[in-house]
């Protein structure tokens, strides 16, 4: 299993950098990972809004939210999400939120 070191902590991730141990997630993980994902500087309030939304949804339903629902509930359109997370909602935002990679035909 590949590992990733962020801010002195070692995390188990999958081949594409998705966190494997969901309970190890912390705000430090997201902030530390931001640079890897091409996000410069500190994560903004909007970043956190999206990350928290994704984590809440995950805690409740065990999967990542649909992108459309994410847009509707956060008020961000797809463009805005890409501006925040250049790799996009699934490969960027969900990754920073510490979710594992989406599976199935999605």
């Amino acid at each position: 299993m590949p590992q990733l070191e962020i801010g002195g902590t070692t995390y188990e991730v999958d081949e594409d950098g998705f966190l494997q141990e969901l309970d190890k997630w912390g705000r430090g993980f997201a902030q530390g990972y931001a640079a890897v994902e091409g996000i410069e500087g500190e994560l903004t309030e909007d970043h956190w809004k999206l990350i928290d939304y994704i984590r809440d949804y995950y805690a409740q339903f065990g999967i990542a939210p649909m992108i459309r629902k994410m847009c509707k509930d956060t008020g961000f359109d797809l463009k805005r999400i890409y501006a925040l997370f250049p790799s996009g909602p699934a490969k960027g935002a969900c990754k920073l939120a510490g979710l594992s990679k989406p599976t199935g035909c999605v």
Partner: peptide, 27 residues
Amino acid sequence: EKGSVQQLRVGSSTGMTPAALKNILEF
């Protein structure tokens, strides 16, 4: 592991539970 096994365990290879399904249908 994340496909057919997950489907047989949870109900869907996406990991979607019946509760999540209902949430999505409401949406």
